[in-house]
Design a protein around this nucleic acid. Sequence first.
DNA 1: CCAAAAGTGTTACCTTTACACCCATGG
DNA 2: CCATGGGTGTAAAGGTAACACTTTTGG
Lengths: 246, 246
Amino acid sequence: MANQLNPHVSVDCVIFGFDFEALHVLLIDRELSTSNTPVIKKDLKLPGSLVYDDEDLDTSASRVLKELTGLENIFLRQFHIFGSPSRVSNKIDLDWLTYTSKLPISRVVTIAYYSLVKIDEVNSADKLAMHGAHWIALDDVGNLAFDHNEILQAGLETLRSRLRAEPIGFELLPKKFTIRQLQTLYEVIIGQKLDSRNFRKKIAKLRYLIPLQEREINVAHKPAQLYRFDKRLYYKTRKENFVFTL
Amino acid sequence: MANQLNPHVSVDCVIFGFDFEALHVLLIDRELSTSNTPVIKKDLKLPGSLVYDDEDLDTSASRVLKELTGLENIFLRQFHIFGSPSRVSNKIDLDWLTYTSKLPISRVVTIAYYSLVKIDEVNSADKLAMHGAHWIALDDVGNLAFDHNEILQAGLETLRSRLRAEPIGFELLPKKFTIRQLQTLYEVIIGQKLDSRNFRKKIAKLRYLIPLQEREINVAHKPAQLYRFDKRLYYKTRKENFVFTL
DNA sequence: CCAAAAGTGTTACCTTTACACCCATGG
DNA sequence: CCATGGGTGTAAAGGTAACACTTTTGG
């Protein structure tokens, strides 16, 4: 009984990465075929898995992430449950699930997670490709398998709204980063240009953003100051701001 | 197959109500007994249900709410899934579930919803008691069944954090309310006293909070102006504020 | 006339916004 | 020496926070 895949519950992960220009998401090839037909169509899906009977949901999502990226202890949060009885209803999707899981599949409830990774720490594109995984810029995402477009969209909106309340942007940047990189990150996630003088003033007031004795190298312009984010200091000094919309 | 209860997936609802003084939550008697033993213990649980095979998750939660309160079209949002393999592991919990559902139960993942209702529109306390349901003030909640204390706590935190971003407080107030009632509501949810002159100034600027040609009656003090919340106007005039914590 | 909550304004401070030019580096 | 992005300050406007007294009703 234990260590069996549970055919009723799955996890799917929206894994975000940032290359200093745009947000990307990690997607997996899905080859549509059945036991006796050749590949009839390819498309892309979110990384995911059925959950083992004795496995915690968070553990299951961590496992997917680890297998794919090689990383552990990564920012990972469940954000929504997709459980419409008809969400896996078309024949191709059902066949694919039944074939790949070797289990009788009817209704599958999926727990959607979003994850933020530092692209430079993840397996290289070559290694990812061996798992059929690719970084796709958000603007280039086409029709995905199952209801994964809907899940991706919801994950993006969660990221947007959480970014306003928590300093999670740093999960997407290398340990050392420039203010410009941070600003661009906020701009692409929020979808708004920001004034960089005002942005820098904001930064300057935050004691948990610490300028290093280091600058960029090999750039064809004045090299920028590097900073790091001190998470511990953030949580020590953070003050609840009781601003509410009403 | 259709219209069968799915023994793997349930919904649980944290239903909040406000009586102008404190937040309350709607809880249900659970009588612990088995086929051949009498009632051995009573405790309280969140209202919930297993999900039918052909039933949407939101529909399932609405069904629970309707059965209990008599209300439809109520504010109801999923906020977390609880799916630890050991969350229903003690014998009493397992026996109860198996006995009441008449299904073989092992692991159950539950989708937790929080709901905001106007206490004056819900079934009266008498009617509720016929379903074994009671409004319990948050401060008076003791040990609940299963992991329901944890679910309740998470629901409360979700309510707190959403209240800062969305005007959902009005779901807990009658259609006509006073500024003092609104302020008390915010105070008990946020857990902070607010300055009432400043609070009123804030209100005065909001065009979607509309003073009525009506005042309180039968109060032993100067009767207060009544207001209503115009949801449509709110969504028409709302402007995204791009404040972010960083 | 008393108790109880309603309602009202001002000031100091802080935050946000808008806006333009010189600097340091690589090629 | 040119192209590229790095880095800087000020002023006006708006929002937030702190604070005490008069008004209106029921009993």
